[in-house]
Design a binder for these strands. Structure first.
Length: 426
RNA sequence: GCGGGUAUAGCUCAGUUGGUUAGAGCGCAAGAUUGUGGCUCUUGAGGCCGUGGGUUCGAGACCCACUACCCGCCCCA
């Protein structure tokens, strides 16, 4: 039997109401905050991600689905990649369509996206090779921290609307590229003296990406980590001032946060503000719900004019997992037909098709089966469909034009004309 | 790439020191009940026991290999 490729999965009808709900709430949040949708291609030239995300990152290094396109007579096949994330593509589109050109100073471009991304990682709880992300990007000439606070305010509303409570907002500033680079050296110096106390993984991190040592879960490493210098101490003055303003904006909006000076970003393009919203319920080891930050240099990296940028992304797979059970049940229960048509005998069967058409034309969600069954069986099918009502159509009903409408939850039944029934569902 | 776990009915799982016909609950089907579902009772259908090899008189069980899935690590939004 052919099955799904490792790390991919089918999203079955039972779960779709949950996915739709997250998408619907997100779109509503974006509408209220002035974001407009953009859809970029699912694959791009490999170079876009190599430059945008960063050559040295693991994503580019070993986690991309890259393939060479078919060669033509006049050219080599070019290297293409299924998008591992969407920020680089959105910035590319922003530049390609010169969205900055008709803007006045300080005017922002607010974009959002929803769609699948691909990473060739080992799957685990809440992590798939084809996963779905929702994200926004704010681009323009301004890097006002009020932008950041407003976006986080929007996320706060979104989580509340989804009934996802018990989350924590973590913030940090990773500074300008220059101050970040000097901090990495400071950190490497500090680690050098304690190398003998670190685990094998951290030895590797010391070489490749010292910032990652902070994420180590080994107890002996944690002891060392506690005494390491933080990036906060190395911040340049402008970044420090920017971060202070950002916090003041959060305070003014009543948004609670925890400063985590050890929270760093893996992708090359991040500058200054970084944030995460972590969940605590039912997410396994993958408890980061939302991650984002500022990426002021990305446009230039991709050959565009100096542009400020700020954005976030969250995984739909994981957000759906984080929905509380009660909310999930409510959403699934709502995903049911309005009425299930039960008919008895061949004459009623023909008549039922007409009734179904009239109800549907009036906007009612109608379920029915085509088999002529005993009433008992038909009622069982009606209950199984989870329809709110069963509409009973036998010879008596056909001749009288009065149908039995039974509320399947309460068991109450009344006799109504088709017009009355349609009115009831309006 | 590395580590641990699991693989038996549609689903969730039992299955004793290796023993003859592989079980339960839920679900599904039929009936009790020929125009009224849910509850109850009765009956039934449904299994290459992940795949391949080995040990044995005999393997769902023990050994080896493989594959798949799950969880975690690496990495990361």
């Amino acid at each position: 039997m052919i099955q799904t490729v490792r790390g991919t999965r089918d999203l079955l009808p039972e779960d779709m109401p949950l996915w739709h709900r997250v998408e619907e709430v997100a779109r509503e949040a974006f509408r209220r905050y002035g974001f407009r949708e953009i859809r970029t291609p699912i694959f791009e030239k490999t170079e876009l991600f190599a430059r945008g995300v960063g050559e040295s990152t693991d994503i580019v290094h070993k986690e991309m689905y890259t393939f060479v396109d078919r060669a033509r007579a006049d050219s080599e096949g070019e290297s293409l990649t299924l998008r591992p994330e969407n920020t680089a593509s959105v910035v590319r589109a922003y530049l390609q369509h010169k969205m900055f050109a008709d803007k006045s100073p300080g005017e922002l471009t607010r974009l959002y996206y929803i769609g699948p991304m691909f990473r060739r990682e080992r799957p685990q709880a809440g992590r798939y090779r084809q996963f779905y992300q929702i994200g926004v990007e704010v681009m323009g000439s301004s890097d006002d921290p009020a932008i950041e606070a407003e976006v986080i305010e929007m996320l706060s509303w979104l989580l509340q609307e989804l009934k996802i409570t018990n989350t924590t907002l973590l913030i940090n500033s990773v500074g300008e590229p220059a101050s970040r680079a000097s901090y990495v050296e400071t950190l490497r110096e500090a680690l050098k003296a304690q190398l003998d106390k670190l685990c094998a993984d951290c030895h590797h991190r010391y070489e490749t990406n010292p910032l990652r040592v902070f994420d180590c879960k080994v107890a002996s490493c944690q002891a060392v980590i506690a005494d390491l210098p933080t990036i906060t101490d190395s911040l340049d003055d402008a970044s420090r001032a920017h971060f202070e303003q950002f916090k003041a904006h959060l305070d003014a909006r009543g948004l609670a946060y925890t400063v985590n000076p050890r929270m760093v970003r893996g992708l090359d393009y991040y500058t200054r503000t970084a944030f995460e919203i972590v969940g605590h319920d039912g997410l396994g080891a993958q408890n980061t719900l939302i991650g984002g930050g500022r990426y002021d240099g990305l446009s230039e990296t991709l050959g565009g004019p100096p542009t400020k940028g700020f954005g976030f992304a969250f995984g739909l797979d994981r957000m759906v997992m984080a929905l509380p059970e009660a909310e999930a049940q409510r959403l699934r229960a709502n995903d049911a037909p309005d009425v299930f048509l039960v008919f008895l005998g061949d004459a009623a069967r023909q008549h039922t098709f007409q009734v179904a058409r009239d109800l549907r034309a009036a906007g009612v969600s109608v379920a029915l089966e085509f088999e002529d069954r005993k009433m008992k069986k038909a009622m069982t099918a009606a209950a199984k469909s989870r329809a709110r009502y069963a509409l009973i159509i036998g010879d008596n009903e056909v001749s009288s034009g009065q149908y039995g409408l039974k509320n399947l939850a309460t068991g109450e039944q009344e006799s109504l004309s088709l017009g009355d029934i349609i009115a009831k569902f309006k």
